[in-house]
């Protein structure tokens, strides 16, 4: 099924959502991206991607956690679905498999 393939940026964001747990909302993901992957993207780009992931059924969301700095607006907290986890595993397996077949690259690297 084509929809289970995920792009590199999507994968990154899925991983971050898992990592951030209860705090996985748009702006926090953006911050984490900067921190862990050294990538600066616009807020719109993050929102666009998580919306796409939700449409693909890889994440679910619910609203909660309004703060003063948000002007009393709630956050949309994302959590990964079973399908999302599966997609992540699959993506990792493919890569690990490929890496193991090219030992020279692995040797040179380490």
């Amino acid at each position: 099924m084509g929809k289970e393939y995920i792009g590199e940026f999507e994968e990154l964001i899925l991983l971050l959502i898992v990592m951030l747990k209860e705090d996985a909302y748009g702006l926090a993901i953006r911050k984490a991206l900067k921190e862990h992957a050294d990538r600066t993207v616009t807020i719109g780009a993050v929102h666009g991607t998580v919306n796409r992931l939700e449409k693909k059924g890889l994440v679910e969301s619910n609203l909660g956690g309004a703060t003063e700095s948000r002007g009393g607006r709630r956050k949309r907290i994302f959590t990964i679905t079973a399908a999302g986890k599966k997609a992540l595993h699959r993506s990792r397996d493919i890569k690990v498999n490929l890496w193991s077949q090219i030992p020279e690259l692995a040797v040179n690297k380490f």
């Binding site: 909302y25 748009g26 702006l27 807020i43 700095s69 948000r70 002007g71 956050k75």
Partner: peptide
């Protein structure tokens, strides 16, 4: 349906 979270994020960012 997206306005609340987007605007919230933007305000927090501005802060």
């Amino acid at each position: 349906e997206l306005l609340e979270e987007i605007q919230g994020d933007l305000h927090e960012y501005h802060e």
